[in-house]
Design a protein around this nucleic acid. Structure first.
Length: 798
RNA sequence: GCCGAAGUGGUGGAAUGGCAUACACGUCGGUCUCAAAAACCGAUAAGGGCAACCUUGUAAGGGUUCAACUCCCUUCUUCGGCACCA
């Protein structure tokens, strides 16, 4: 007999919705648990990645409820963004219409999976009652000079026809459409995330429950590097070139310096020099090279001499100044001191252009000589040719030289970062309008708070062909200046959508609150997010921005913590035949058809059983079939319940309760399910009574909620199974009187014996030595050593 | 180059110093059936042996330990992040 999953799942889904079974209310008398999964972009259809992400979250939410926590488990939609615009163009509809239809369709699919969301808290970022607060946050940042406008070379995607943040560029290409990113000079809005760089780095230390790899990625992204800025004077002028180095110990070996082609002093340095023409040609060439070509590591290092000289401030030596393509304006000061003997890039460049070298660090095991060098020596050693620092270890010298230079005023201990401010202007329609007005008299004027929201006009002529579509909406653009009431124009760019998702977890605490972005009291109860679950692809972008916003809200005094997510779980991808499921590869499996064939419960069970949450999961429909068979196997138990279960079953049950409780707490769902399967197998051998079966059903309920709810009702319960409490195990029952000991000889298993739990070591020894199976191994020599691990094993060494 | 994660049967995976391969998939065999499906029961790392058993085995090599998938060192491979980063 097969249980009727279709009927059962529909029935309970309707009931849960009608009764608002998963409504969460703040309650100071109860311990809260805020469980959050990354909300989806409303594409219209859920995919297996969503199913996995949300199945993991739902099990945790339901488990915590059964344990008595007051659980908030909200869901919403990250609804602004380019795909809606593209789809609207394609389907000749409006992004708003298209998006809301997708939200509806996707909501239906999520409901069909039986996820226990509090739908009353649904947040949709493209609705003005949400994005109004994006604008409010932007204005607050503007007030604190954390939002500012700047002209600069920016990343430009010609296919998306918009600018991109540094975080949105991967391998020199647009993260969304993989088009090669170009550089363009534009005036754009930035958020000053760099104001929080130290705190963003330091607070990573708080995040004990985050995966190592995410912490490592954030650390890399922030890219702090400590060193010294050294001031090189010019030979023929009083200008100064500042270079940055992390190897100040090699300063006495600096035989030339190199500037990036874009360095502001370059034009001055070459002016009137015989090399001027050649240098200008080179600068022009570098400017045309794309960043990808320039940063490819196998490219030959090219450069030209400026004709000018600088003075090395530690020894007053004259050193030539070069321009080269391997020095980047974006990093450090855009200028380096070159130490060819101890830096491989400088070495290659010096060889190529026949520049001088000097060894200043001698390794212990060999004697370096400039004429014999075939590569730079980048390791540690002892200082030589370094005046009073000779003889010191270079590590010691590094600190001493830095301090000495600071004292003499020729250098400064300095830190450089990789992190850049966040460019948020997008030349697209479907996003939050930036609440700024440009007045020819008053300049940049923020929209007054009382005028929020700046509504996104419902009609705009977007064609996908570039230029901000809002710029063509006259009624939107033309506005009175809030200060002088003269004619002014609105900003026509919209905000990057990562702005929207940088604080939605706070909005969930009070999604309908009208007086502020969130209700401080509600946030005080619900925040921080106890468990956050989502894909590794957000390891940098979304998680970094959210951490930044949280720190900003803390500075505004609206919250009293600086990190939003206490625990983070990044779930692995779903693969098919070893490859990531994706539309472009055409190897996707539609969750909907799986629900039709096997039910949502079986799908949830399979996806949780097939692999631990963090690792990749290989899709296997036969495995799904197996999960379905298991549910049927459990289902049939209720038809044959005994009045009293045997002791062995009771013991097994309590062992299982212990194991499943521990595994659920640690998000080890695959092994939890394995123990439930083992218990089921034992029940097939020995039978179960109503109590044992009820407990099995409760333990299964977070994974297969409809299935469990139905069985719970069949067992005669009136209330929902999710009002029941998680079973507790009786430690007494887990204590065995006898225990099987493994007997090893020289570490190899040779026998097993059953002994009383509290056997003394001497009587155990006596017993073991009498074991006939051991005779061939022990011979008649006395054992050298006799190791006893209580209740586990004995190892005899001969 | 730097940083991070991983490598275990035919397959997904389990075991974090103490019986390697739990649980499941697949395969094979059996029960039931006119038959099939379903269901139920059993076998299933490799090699050797009629068998009881024995040997080998967790990417490779070495080490620590009575005992190593697990800890340490070296190397290889795969995946991910950063990178002419000074």
């Amino acid at each position: 007999m097969i249980y009727n999953f279709k009927e059962i799942e529909e029935k309970w889904q309707m009931k849960w919705l009608k009764e608002q079974a998963y409504r969460a209310q703040a309650d100071d008398t109860r311990k809260k648990y805020y469980l959050l999964e990354m909300f989806p972009y409303p594409s219209g259809k859920i995919h297996m990645g969503h199913v996995r992400n949300y199945a993991i979250g739902d099990v945790a939410a339901r488990f915590k409820r059964l344990q008595g926590y007051n659980v908030m488990h909200p869901m919403g939609f990250d609804a602004f963004g380019q795909p809606a615009e593209n789809a609207a163009i394609k389907n000749k509809t409006k992004p708003d219409t298209w998006t809301h239809k997708c939200i509806k369709d996707m909501g239906t699919e999520l409901k069909r999976m039986g996820f226990s969301y509090d739908w009353e808290r649904e947040v949709i970022t493209c609705d003005s009652d949400y994005y109004k607060w994006n604008q409010w946050i932007f204005l607050k940042m503007f007030e604190k000079s954390l939002a500012y406008k700047k002209a600069s070379a920016v990343n430009w995607c010609s296919s998306c026809q918009t600018t991109l943040a540094n975080e949105e560029v991967a391998d020199g290409s647009c993260w969304r459409c993989h088009t090669k990113v170009e550089q363009k000079d534009l005036e754009q809005w930035y958020l000053k995330i760099t104001a929080y760089k130290e705190k963003l780095l330091e607070d990573l230390g708080q995040l004990q429950e985050w995966p190592q790899r995410v912490l490592a990625m954030q650390n890399n992204w922030l890219g702090k590097s400590s060193g010294v800025d050294i001031y090189f004077g010019l030979k023929d002028s009083d200008k100064v070139i500042s270079v940055f180095t992390t190897r100040v110990d090699t300063i006495f070996g600096a035989t030339y310096i190199v500037l990036a082609a874009e360095h502001p002093l370059v034009k001055d340095l070459i002016k009137g020099k015989p090399q001027e023409k050649e240098a200008l040609k080179f600068i022009d060439k570098v400017a045309k090279e794309s960043k990808i070509v320039r940063t490819a590591s196998d490219v030959k290092k090219e450069g030209v001499f400026t004709g000018s000289f600088a003075i090395n401030p530690v020894n007053n030596e004259e050193v030539p100044i070069w321009i080269a393509d391997y020095v980047l304006m974006e990093y450090g000061t855009g200028a380096i001191m070159a130490v060819p003997t101890h830096d491989q890039r400088d070495f290659l460049f010096a060889k190529e252009h026949k520049l001088p070298m000097r060894v200043v660090i001698q390794p212990k095991e060999q004697q370096l000589k400039v004429e014999n060098l075939i590569q730079a020596y980048e390791g540690d050693g002892v200082q030589v040719n370094s005046q009073e620092f000779d003889g010191l270890s270079n590590l010691e010298a590094k600190e001493k030289i830095a301090a000495w230079m600071e004292k003499k005023g020729i250098g400064k201990i300095q830190t450089h970062w990789r992190l850049r401010d966040w460019l948020i202007s997008r030349q697209r329609y479907w996003g939050t309008p930036i609440p700024i007005i440009y007045c020819s008299k008053c300049g940049i004027v923020p929209v007054p708070y009382k005028d929020l929201p700046v509504e996104l006009p419902s009609e705009a002529p977007f064609t996908g062909e570039g230029g901000s579509p809002l710029g063509k909406v006259k009624e939107f653009v033309e506005v009175k200046c809030p200060k002088c009431f003269g004619l002014a124009r609105r900003e026509t760019d919209t905000m990057a959508t990562f702005f929207d998702s940088s604080w939605y977890f706070l909005r969930f605490c009070s999604p309908k609150f009208e007086a502020a972005a969130f209700d401080i009291q509600e946030a005080k109860y619900w925040m921080r997010v106890d468990q956050y679950i989502g894909g590794i692809e957000h390891a940098i972008l979304h998680l970094l921005y959210s951490r930044f916003f949280t720190k900003f809200f803390q500075d505004l005094g609206m919250i009293d913590f600086s990190e939003p997510f206490e625990r983070l779980l990044t779930q692995g991808m779903v693969l098919k035949d070893g490859e990531v499921m994706s539309k472009s590869k055409g190897n996707t499996v539609d969750p909907d058809s799986m629900i039709k064939n096997y039910g949502a419960d079986a799908l949830r069970l399979f996806i949780l059983f097939a692999a631990p949450p963090e690792t990749e999961l290989e899709w296997d429909e036969r495995g799904l079939e197996g999960a379905f068979k298991f549910l049927n196997r459990v289902w049939r138990i209720h038809e044959n319940l005994k009045t009293k279960a045997e002791d062995i079953i009771i013991k097994n049950l309590h062992k299982t309760i212990k194991k499943v409780s521990e595994d659920f707490s640690a998000f080890k769902f695959n092994t939890a399910i394995a123990s439930l399967m083992e218990l089921t197998n034992t029940i097939y051998q020995h039978g179960a009574d109503k109590d044992v079966f009820s407990k099995l059903v409760i333990m299964l309920s977070p994974i297969a909620p409809h299935f469990a709810e139905e069985l719970w009702q069949i067992l005669g319960n009136q209330e929902s199974i999710f009002k029941a409490s998680w079973p507790k195990y009786d430690a007494q029952l887990l204590i065995e009187e006898n225990v099987e000991l493994v007997i090893q000889v020289n570490g190899k298993v040779r026998s097993k014996i059953e002994v009383p739990l509290d056997i003394s070591e001497s009587s155990l020894k006596e017993l073991v030595l009498k074991d006939e199976k051991l005779i061939p191994w022990l011979g008649n020599k006395p054992p050298k050593k006799f190791i006893v691990v209580p209740q586990k094993l004995v190892n005899i060494v001969i």
